[in-house]
Design a protein around this nucleic acid. Structure first.
Lengths: 354, 354
DNA sequence: CTGTTAGCGCATTCAC
DNA sequence: GTGAATGCGCTAACAG
């Protein structure tokens, strides 16, 4: 195995078609065709070329290829954060499918900022991505930018956080159903005063979960009480913690404090456990808890935590498949789908019968 | 805001220098220089060009630029898995620094397989990365491939999992010290029969942690007992779980079962809590526990888990900085550093005094 | 101050 | 079967 030696003109110095051509006294186009197994080239020549290429560890320059062909075989992925369980699982799914179909993924973080999200998209676009997978930042309410991009021909697929403002394939969890299940479960276990701890965002994900909660209450003839609904600032971890603590204290100081809490995000759910423990409330004795989270540690928590689990890996996989099929124009643009994958309720001690 | 309309020749159709040139009746090189704020171009022209470019949302084609300049301003990152707390935090750190210096990162997963790792590296190399950040797969014992690549001029920085086989910058945690601290802490809290649950790998990370454990025992005049050392298969989650359960059962069936366990990876540590609970052992009553993990949920676990915490984000940041400085040749190649960042011991209930 | 030219590495059309 | 020529979008050396 051998890599070409460093030269001064930059790049990572792999040997080029031209180098092979020179060495084998052939033309670059012959080499190109030979390596692409073109019918125009003789078997004998092909063998020689392939052997030489392998020996010298030829690897085609992706940028040149991309520039020439107008495709980069790369997919841009924009998420709020890398350091997030659920997102990581989705990325894993995206990566599996993309790699399987020889697409490279370029991941960028918006950190929940619309400005940064736009910067990411620009960079990705400039990089010549063939398509874009995006789970929009909380902050993002204006999708005209993304829509313009899409209108210009870039395939875009939304995953995780969906919005009605975009017309394209969308893949997420069935958040309404997940929330409904969680709430119903609490009611069935004898809880009547169920609080809902949510984010302060306009994300459909958030709204769907709220509506699922309300629907379950309504179906069980329990009045929705605004007092039991609190939202937390999600853009900053410290803020979130502060907001959460405040929300819990507020709940518990009510004349009729809730006997159960349904939480709607990974962060909120797990921090709630910590906070309730810290504030000295027994779960589920003083207040039951169930929430959205994918943590594998639910069983090991104090108490074992009842959870609504999202099929994150599958969401990633499916989103990537949809995008790639769009890129490769397997489908016409008309049949855009919105796919909501089933969540799973995992009942453990934190929501035990009252 | 406006993007150029879809055409048939592929690529994501942003407008090009040529388009601007045509529209403004100038040459492409003038446009190029104007947009790069060259001193050769008049203020008036610059303004016109910049205005037009902004209006039409011009964004330079990264591939063309890269091809021309022999640099792509992108960094390849290879890790074992995306779906891993500690790794995600490191990636976050890498991303912060890279983005800050206008480098794009391309993340790929080896899934602990050397073959897949090589495939990743090839793809990245082909993509024209300016440098490579890698935390090698467990399986990887032969570094000749990476060394050849490095010899050909590609800057490589190791992070997290280091090896003596490579000569370059290396950034990781001080695993020896972390393990030493954990073990000493257990001893100081009255534990004498301390088991060590490790991975079955040759990673330095693993060896350092074992040596730290041994050193602490030796310093406290406690004999190292091979019976208290078990290794688990780390390449597969199911295998790991099975191995762990077997290891715990084995420990507890010993004539002199350990009174404490020190675990060495995130996965092993957290799963141990679940398994010990499941098997009915009280922590720390029957057996104390402390281990490496960065989980934020340590406080909420049953019992609150004593942990050795790695500065993962900082490791990522520093590694990225080192790589970029290598890429930009700020340092000569001689002064390669191996940086081991301090771990932090966070004592909670699971290792309470005996 | 602006334009012309050339070339990065590759695939492709068209000659031979 | 093979090769010469062209151009993807960009920058840079060199002319004017």
């Amino acid at each position: 195995m051998q890599f070409r030696h460093q030269n001064e003109t930059g790049m990572n110095n792999s040997i080029t078609l031209k180098d092979i051509a020179k060495a084998l006294h052939l033309s670059t186009s012959t080499i190109s065709k030979a390596l692409n197994d073109s019918y125009e080239i003789g078997e004998e020549t092909k063998k020689r070329v392939v052997a030489y290429a392998r020996e010298h560890h030829y690897v085609p320059n992706r940028m040149a290829k991309g520039l020439k062909q107008g495709k980069s075989r790369s997919i841009g992925v924009v998420v709020c954060s890398l350091d997030n369980n659920v997102i990581a699982q989705m990325l894993d799914g995206i990566d599996k499918v993309s790699t399987g179909k020889s697409y490279q993924i370029i991941i960028m973080q918006s950190k929940e900022s619309q400005a940064q999200e736009m910067a990411c998209i620009d960079l990705l676009y400039a990089g010549g991505i063939d398509g874009l997978l995006i789970s929009p930042a909380c902050e993002t309410i204006d999708f005209s930018y993304l829509k313009a991009l899409q209108a210009s021909g870039l395939p875009v697929v939304l995953f995780d956080r969906l919005t009605d403002q975009m017309e394209t394939h969308k893949v997420g969890a069935d958040n309404f159903k997940g929330a409904y299940d969680a709430t119903l479960h609490l009611i069935e276990n004898g809880y009547k005063r169920i609080a809902h701890l949510n984010t302060n965002t306009n994300l459909s994900i958030s709204i769907d979960r709220l509506n699922g909660y309300k629907a379950a209450l309504a179906d069980q003839k329990i009045d929705f009480k605004a007092a039991y609904l609190r939202s937390c600032d999600y853009t900053d971890t410290n803020r979130l913690n502060a907001d959460l603590e405040q929300a819990i204290k507020y709940y518990m100081s009510l004349p009729e404090p809730p006997d159960a809490i349904f939480t709607t995000t990974d962060q909120i759910t797990t921090r709630c456990v910590t906070l309730l423990n810290k504030l000295g409330y027994r779960i589920p004795g003083d207040v039951a808890l169930i929430g959205f989270t994918n943590t594998e540690l639910a069983d090991a928590m104090n108490p074992a935590l009842s959870t609504i689990h999202q099929p994150a890996f599958e969401i990633g996989q499916l989103a990537a498949e949809k995008l790639i099929s769009l890129i490769e124009r397997k489908h016409l643009e008309e049949d855009f789908e919105t796919i909501k994958l089933k969540t799973q309720i995992l009942v453990r001690s934190s929501s035990q019968k009252n």
